[in-house]
Structures are given as structure tokens and as C-alpha cells.
């Protein structure tokens, strides 16, 4: 695709490398393998949420319900403890099925009611938020689900399961985007919805599919987060709404759709976690943290050039 896009994705990766090198030189503890692995584990949560978000955004939409779905998964799973399911795999499958269905409902709303995805997913988020308070109240819910604990803390061939999961999701996402008809349809829809539909693109199926995928990814991220924390509470997913969108945008994907790749989003996710870690290292106050974060997004947007106004 265009040179500009390559440029933006490359830019993201270059910034990541530069930050890691600089931080490693300034702060000896930073470049230790253990610390970097920890950063990647954190980045994998954002990265997995942002995988679904990337698909939705490239197709010309946006999913503002991911945070609520993450929280939903983290709270609903502990409640799905059954004697016939000692491994916890059944609960994991059920939770993922439910979150995929919620994403699917987003898609149905966008397709059938023709409500703008921004508004529809915002509404979904609000409804889920109310439902969660009813279910969980203000308290945290702990889990002993072995499958989830393994996902959040286990390792496979020495690699943390979170990173393994991310690798799998990344491979699937990249394949869907660049190797399937669905992926091409997404680029077409995001570039010009009307022209794509008139060219016979199955818009309804594609939109439904990406919203369901986003629901699945958010649910999976919620489970990983639950496994790492061992308890779920209302608000656990909050940081990942803006995080997922920021990762997508920092990775060079156009927020207006039609242009981008998940390769960039991976860089964006790592970049985001690294910046957060660095801000914590320099001991900035929450205010400065937010300002640095917002300023960085805006700065990178201004550098990487104009888009059509929206």
C-alpha cells in the first residue's frame, strides 16, 4: 500500500526501539529481559483488545464498548463456576461466547438500525455498565478458575501464556486482514462505504463479523486480566477503551478507516505500555501522565499528517 502508511508503521516501531534503547541506557533496570517481558505481558492485553478494534476501525467503524465488555468478562466468569467443569474450560468458552454475542449485537444494531457505530457501541457500554453494577455491586469478585489462572500466569515453552495468546491473535488478525475476502471488504468499506456496497461488498456480513470479533477479543482480554489480577471488579476494563484506540491510531491506522495494518497496532500497543512505564519511572503525577499521554497522541497525529476531516 502507500508509502505514507509504511512510513507511519515504521515510525511506530522506530519510536518503540528508540525509547527502549534510551530508557535502557538511562535506567539500567529497564532493559533487563525480565522487565521487557513484563512490559510485553502488559502490552498483550492492550494488543488483544486493539486487534478487534483494528478490524472494526479499518472497516470504517469504532467500538467504544470494549472496556465494558472486558469488565463484563472479568466479572461474569467467576460466577460461572460449576461442579461439572473442574478445568474451568467450560466457563471460559461460555464467557467468550457471551462476549462474542454482545459484539454481534453491536454489529446487528449497526447493520439493521443503521445507527452510527460510535453511538451504538457507546449505548451498549452504558447498558453493560448498568448491568454490571446490578450483578457485582461495588465489590471485587475473586476467581479460582484453573484455566483462567493458567492463561494469566502460566507459561508455554518458557513464554508467558499472555504473550502466547497475543501471538496467536496477532497471526489470525493479520491473516484475516491481508489474506481473506473479509479483509479486503473491510479495506473497501472503510475507504468508501457507498462505493464498496455498490461494488457488491457484503457490508452487513463484514460489519457483523468484525464487531463479533471485537467482542471476542475484548472478552479474551478480560479473562487474561482476570487471570493476572485473580479478581474482577467494576472498572477493571476502563483504561483499555482509550488504550485500544490509541494503539490503533499510534500504529498508523486511519481512525476514519480503509487504511492500516495490525502490524502497526502491535507497535502502538508496546509503545503505549512503554510510555506508561516510563512516566511511572520518572514518578510523574497522574495529571502530568495524562497530559504527556494526550500530547503524544496529538503530536504523532500532527506529524503523521492530515486526514480527511471527520
Amino acid at each position: 500500500m502507500s508509502g505514507l502508511l509504511r512510513h507511519r508503521v515504521t515510525l511506530g516501531w522506530l519510536v518503540v526501539v528508540a525509547l527502549w534503547v534510551a530508557a535502557g541506557l538511562l535506567k539500567p533496570g529497564f532493559a533487563k529481559i525480565g522487565h521487557l517481558r513484563y512490559l510485553l505481558e502488559l502490552a498483550s492485553i492492550t494488543g488483544i483488545v486493539a486487534a478487534g478494534q483494528t478490524l472494526v476501525v479499518i472497516g470504517g467503524g469504532i467500538d467504544l464498548s470494549v472496556a465494558a465488555i472486558i469488565t463484563f468478562a472479568a466479572i461474569i466468569l467467576p460466577l460461572l463456576t460449576f461442579p461439572f467443569d473442574p478445568s474451568g474450560m467450560g466457563a471460559v468458552a461460555m464467557t467468550l461466547a457471551i462476549t462474542t454475542a454482545i459484539g454481534g449485537l453491536n454489529g446487528i444494531g449497526v447493520v439493521l438500525l443503521r445507527v452510527h457505530p460510535l453511538i451504538l457501541t457507546l449505548a451498549t457500554a452504558t447498558i453493560l455498565q448498568g448491568a454490571l453494577i446490578l450483578i457485582a455491586g461495588g465489590s471485587a469478585i475473586s476467581t479460582v478458575n484453573p484455566a483462567v489462572t493458567f492463561l494469566g500466569n502460566g507459561a508455554l515453552f518458557g513464554l508467558p501464556m499472555t504473550i502466547v495468546t497475543w501471538l496467536v491473535i496477532a497471526a489470525v488478525t493479520l491473516f484475516v486482514l491481508h489474506g481473506t475476502v473479509l479483509g479486503s471488504w473491510l479495506f473497501a468499506l472503510g475507504t468508501n462505504d457507498r462505493a464498496a456496497r455498490l461494488a457488491g461488498v457484503g457490508a452487513g456480513q463484514a460489519i457483523l463479523a468484525v464487531h463479533a470479533a471485537s467482542g471476542f477479543c475484548a472478552g479474551l482480554a478480560g479473562l487474561l486480566l482476570l487471570g493476572m489480577n485473580r479478581q474482577g471488579y467494576v472498572g477493571i476494563g476502563e483504561p483499555y477503551l482509550l488504550g485500544s484506540i490509541a494503539a490503533v491510531v499510534l500504529g498508523g491506522t486511519s481512525i476514519l478507516g480503509g487504511r492500516g495494518t495490525y502490524l502497526g497496532t502491535i507497535a502502538g500497543s508496546i509503545l503505549l505500555v512503554t510510555i506508561t512505564a516510563l512516566i511511572t519511572v520518572v514518578n510523574a503525577s497522574p495529571g502530568w501522565r495524562a497530559i504527556l499521554f494526550g500530547g503524544l497522541i496529538l503530536g504523532l497525529l500532527l506529524i503523521s499528517g492530515r486526514e480527511r476531516s471527520g
Partner: peptide, 29 residues
């Protein structure tokens, strides 16, 4: 420009888009 071709995408992409599903095998390009 608004209803037919997808301007920023490639000539090849535009030429194959309507027939993409038939060119593909089980959804794989």
C-alpha cells in the same frame, strides 16, 4: 470518485473487488 472506484486503493484491488468472492477459495484470497 464517490460511488465507483476506491481512489486511494490500487488498480488491482479495484479491478478484482466485485469478483473477489468468486476468485477466492472458501474466503481465502
Amino acid at each position: 470518485k464517490r460511488e465507483a472506484v476506491l481512489l486511494p486503493l490500487s488498480i488491482g484491488f479495484n479491478l478484482t473487488l466485485p469478483g473477489l468472492r468468486r476468485l477466492a477459495r472458501r474466503g481465502l484470497r
